[in-house]
Amino acid sequence: MAEPAEKQPRVVVLTLNYKLTPRVQAYLEDLTKAGVRVDLLVVERRTLEDIDLDDLVNVHHVFDSEMYGHPLRRVERRLVFDLPSKVFHKTRSVTREGERLVLLDKAATKVRRGQSYVSRGIHYGIFWPVFRRARKYLLISRAKKAALRSIDLAGADRIVAADSSVLPMAWRLAKLFPGVKATTALDRKPWVK
């Protein structure tokens, strides 16, 4: 009777940074070279732009794009950038036409510039600093759902929280799967010598 084939090890790597750091890339490379399968959860498709990953890495996304995928960011984007843009676009489509409306058109252009400046100020000065701090908590439920839906966590050999943003979510997953080793260490043992 043939010996049962040895089970191929599998590691779940979780990261919520916008870019995959060189440290994590090197980790994935070392694991896949050693024949370890990896389920990689990233925040959005753009995270892996220009990065070549081995076929052993199975990628999962929380959003296609966080900017339009997360309700808070979507609402902020719509209210602060898209809506004023639309209003000014409509206004100018009217003021551009008539010769008597030249002054009004110039004023609209100036207001548009001012609005653009204010929108950026609101986004970078108010919204973003607050969102950035709260992001890891705001993303927990979505990321957890994405991970639970598409990754076999119970059958994984290890869950790795690869950055500090993902730690609260990884901690909750560790509680859900007490039998799976869960760590913040990019530990290659025992697969890589």
Binding site: L167, P168, W171, A174, T183
Partner: peptide
Amino acid sequence: NQDLHSMGWLQGTLPD
């Protein structure tokens, strides 16, 4: 400590 199982509520939820 890098072991997520042994982290307490505060370390696991509010790590910073």
